[in-house]
């Protein structure tokens, strides 16, 4: 290897290392840390992005970092020590995992609810109009696997409706179910009301009465490992306050029960 190249490699390595150090130094940020890290369920992406924008506007100098993924994925990350100030889950089970392990701090507050709906491709090829139609032979139905919250909810409404579903696929996330409906692979899928709303005119939602048998509650809590307790409390107040309520109802969420 020529000396020139070696020097170039050294410079590159040094600048990379400096970059890494710089990043972590900025993240630590000493006392004047005005960055809030929020872990939120994937279904909250649109509404939390809006909320965070408004929160930043009202609190100049504050930066909200959002991380979206499946609730169980986020809960696992937090358990493994991921640095987050606030966790908003799409179900109570994953929040309970954290509060049972004393990883949350203060009260766990419910801020929204979500129910399932039938999503069909815009052309509705299988002419689905009610929950019972999903049990018709030849109708390709896709639901979530029972290991994930939307799948547990799907099994609950199936029981309430007394119709035995024979899904052609049990996906591991509600986004995958919606994807199969949008692409027209499936004739129908069970997804959340908010998913249909967010998908626009690519799918049609068909509400059904039994959906009320499985209401998903969204809780939010500050985390013990968080570095910014005050900001966390302020952000949670926005989520559970009137601003949050407006944004969540726009997105199709229901108000928290009780």
């Amino acid at each position: 290897m020529r000396p020139g190249r070696q020097a170039a490699a050294l410079v590159l390595a040094a600048s990379l290392a400096a970059g890494l150090l710089g990043c972590s130094a900025a993240a630590r940020g000493g006392g004047a840390d005005r960055t809030l890290t929020v872990f939120a369920a994937a279904s909250l992406k649109a509404s939390f992005t809006r909320l965070a924008g408004e929160f930043e506007l009202r609190n100049p100098g504050v930066k909200v970092r959002l991380s979206f993924a499946g609730s169980s994925e986020l809960a696992a990350q937090i358990t493994q020590g991921a640095p987050a100030d606030v966790f908003a889950s799409a179900d109570t089970t994953n929040m309970a995992k954290l509060s049972d392990a004393s990883l949350t701090e203060g009260a766990v507050q419910d801020f929204a609810t979500n129910v399932l709906t039938i999503a069909v491709p815009a052309s509705n090829p299988a002419a689905v109009s009610a929950f019972g139609d999903l049990a018709r032979p030849g109708v390709k139905v896709v639901i979530c696997a029972s290991q994930v919250p939307c799948g547990a909810a799907a099994r609950a409404v199936e029981k309430a409706a007394g119709a035995a579903l024979k899904p052609v696929s049990e996906e591991s996330s509600v986004a995958d179910v919606l994807g199969k409906v949008i692409s027209g692979e499936a004739d129908a899928g069970l997804v959340y009301v908010t998913d249909v709303k967010a998908a626009g005119d690519k799918v049609r939602g068909i509400p059904f009465a039994e959906a009320g048998q499985a209401v998903n509650t969204y809780p939010i809590a500050a985390l013990r490992g968080g570095r910014n307790k005050e900001l966390a409390a302020a952000f949670m107040a926005t989520v559970t306050g009137p601003d949050g309520a407006k944004i969540f109802s726009d997105a199709g969420f229901g108000a928290p029960v009780g």
């Binding site: 499946g70 169980s72 696997a145 290991q147 899904p167 696929s169 049990e170 199969k180 692979e185």
Partner: peptide
């Protein structure tokens, strides 16, 4: 996952089963 879906005994191969089990167990 993208193309075939995920159903026990039909399309849920070992990697898909691992991915799903990770959710709960």
């Amino acid at each position: 996952l993208t193309f075939a879906g995920s159903l026990q005994g039909v399309t849920r191969t070992l990697p898909l089963e691992i991915y799903l089990q990770r959710e709960t167990d």
